[in-house]
Structure formats: C-alpha cells, structure tokens
C-alpha cells in the first residue's frame, strides 16, 4: 500500500509542527483527504495508526479525525466548475489507479464535462494534508 508513505509524511510533519508550536504532547490530529486521490479513510486510518508510533512515541494513542473533502475542479478553458463525478464517468480501473498514485494525472484522464478540455484547476480536494494539531 502506498498510503503508508503518505501516512509517514503526516506523522513526521505533525511532530515537526508540534515542535514549532511548542507543544509538549499531541492529543489530536485532523487530516484532510482530498476526494481526487481516492484514498480510503479506514485504510488510511489504519496506516496512520501503524506508522505514527514508529515515527515518535508521542504519536501513540493520538486521537485521529480524517475528513474527506470533495474535489472541486474548474475548467481554465471555459470556466465551468465541476466535480469528480462529472469529470470521470468513463475512467478505467488503471486510470483511476494512476490518479490515486499521482493526482495530477487527472489532467491525463479527466476532461471538463462542458468543453472536453484537460486544462482545469483543482480548486480543492487534491491529496492528503494535515489540517489541525491539538495538544498541550
């Protein structure tokens, strides 16, 4: 599972951010998952649970909230806003998998539903990010 690599990134970044914010311990992490990358929340939670204590003991038992954010796309050619359902109706399994690995490959496989252009902007909901750290 390549999700472990991203989970490791979340763990390392949380520790770095906590240090920067002067937190002695982390109690809760909020992680955003962009719909475009199609990462399963349960699977990513499992990956985080497994990876986090190995990165820092401080991360063992931290409360996790994972929020899936919808992908919002907008065509640069015609200005049409659209969502993932409108843009990916004919994706094959391999094409969806490619976007799962590298979300920018949406530009290879998705099209603006209005004009067919691959030149669109991913306004929101691309990949994985750390939204919030709580601690003391």
């Amino acid at each position: 599972m390549h999700e472990f690599a991203l989970a490791e990134g979340v763990a390392v970044t949380a520790v770095q951010a906590a240090r920067k914010e002067g937190l002695q311990r982390i109690t809760r992490l909020t992680v955003g998952i962009g719909e475009l990358q199609q990462i399963e929340r349960e699977l990513f939670t499992g990956a985080l649970r497994e990876v986090m204590p190995a990165i820092h003991p401080q991360l063992a038992g931290v409360e996790l909230e994972l929020i899936v954010r919808p992908a919002r796309l907008r065509c640069r050619a015609c200005g049409q806003p659209f969502d993932l359902q409108a843009g990916n109706s004919e994706l094959t399994e391999d094409q969806a998998e490619a976007i799962h690995f590298v979300p920018e490959l949406a530009h290879t496989y998705l099209r603006c539903p209005a004009c067919g252009s691959p030149d669109f902007e991913v306004m929101e909901g691309r990949g994985v990010w750390l939204e919030e750290i709580e601690g003391a």
Partner: peptide, 15 residues
C-alpha cells in the same frame, strides 16, 4: 494553523 503539506517532510528519508 494553515493546512500543512505532509509530503516534503519525508523526502529526505526516501533518499
């Protein structure tokens, strides 16, 4: 806190 990109933090580890 602004949203943080978790990816750059592990690139050194990959290499």
């Amino acid at each position: 806190m602004n949203n943080l990109d978790p990816r750059p933090g592990v690139i050194d580890r990959r290499l």
